[in-house]
Every structure is written in C-alpha cells, then in structure tokens.
Amino acid sequence: MKLAIEVVAIDTLMLRLFDQIEESNMPWLLAAAERLRDVFADKLLELVPSYTTLLVQYDLTQLDDQQARELIKQALTDLSPQAATAGREQQIPVWYDTSVGPELAAIGSRSGLGVAGVIDCHSQHVYQVFALGFAPGFAFMGLVDEIIASPRLSTPRQQVPAGSLGIADRQTAIYPLQSPGGWNLIGRSPTRLFDRELDGYSLLQPGDRVRFVAVDRAEFVRLGGDDTPFEVKP
C-alpha cells in the first residue's frame, strides 16, 4: 500500500492506495476506511471506497485542507489489513438462462465453453465486492475468468430488468433496480440487493465475498424471481 493524497474538490480529498485492481487491495481499503471513520468522526461527510481509492469528503466548516490531511495521516499510521472482520461470505441464487440472459449463448459460443460451461465457470468462482456505485446497491464484483470476460455492449440498453446478472470485462454485477445498462446479461437473481428495510440498506458491501449458486426456474420463482423473458429489441 502507498498513500497519495490529492485534492479533487473544495472539501474532498482522494486517497490513492494502489495502482492496480487486485483482490488483495480490499482488506487494506476496508481497514483504512474504518480508521478514517473513527478519526474523522462527525467531521466526515462521505467516504467512498472504490477498487484502489478512498474518496474523503470532510465538513469544511470544521476542518481545512491541512487539518484533513493530518487526520488522514493519523488514521493511516501503522495500518494493518483486516482479515477476520473484513467482508462476509454471501451466496446469491441465480437462474442462468438464455430467456433472461440474452448474452449467455453468445458468450458460450465465443468462449467455446457452451452455455453449461459458462454457467459452471461463472458460478464456481468466489468474487470480491470492489465497490458500490452506478445505482443504490449495485456491487462491482470480480474478477471473472478471462475466458468469459466480455466488453460492454456498444449501445447500452434503455431498460435492464431488476435482478439481471451481467458481465463487463472481468467484472460482474447484479442490477438492483430496473435501469439502463450496457453489461452482458447471463441470468437473473431473485435476491433483493437494496432495501431500505435491510440493515445497512445494501445486501452487498465492499469487501464481501460472493458465490453465485445456479438454481432452476422453479426455484427462482419460488424465491420470488420474475421469470418474464427478456425481450431483445431489434
């Protein structure tokens, strides 16, 4: 871990801790985030972790730039990565099917794995949550096997149904809400990812480890999934 602190707005500093996306970054980022929350206390407005960085927005009625930098250095001195407390292991059911995953067949033929091979490949790996963003509870996870990695669609779709599971390059994510989106869709999950009744609001948090469990249509529906086929518009 390194530490570069950059100004990005009047009350916001970016902490650059790593250069590359690595699963091993997350315990450090989580440990740093926890210490920063403690040290800044009510002087912290926002702390946004993402892959290699932490964005820190402070209350500039209580701190100036220099004082914020000193608190950051104080928080990150003698930091050790979180191990036991970092991230929970989550299992998320997914109905992998071409009727709800319009890119599943294409990824199957391009990779040479076939549909069943893509499902095995995607569901056998344990993924790390790197960041939340794009929409409430939208968790960027990775890294998917290079053989099924797929670039974003050249034209994003206007509507992607809630629960859709997608791949973009070596990342994977579930759309918590119906929204526009350009990821390659390979299935659908019945699990609610963002719920204001949920403790912490978002089921997935940065640092969580996630395994997708393939379920059949009947189980998907039993768990509350909507099996309306995805309409591929010409």
């Binding site: 707005a9 926002e46 960085t53 964005l55 960027f140």
Partner: peptide, 10 residues
C-alpha cells in the same frame, strides 16, 4: 482509468 468516487461539481 480505474473508477473512483466523484465529487459534486466534478
């Protein structure tokens, strides 16, 4: 660029 948090007015 690796995605990162974006502040108001960016």
């Amino acid at each position: 660029m690796v995605s990162e948090g974006v502040p108001l007015g960016a």
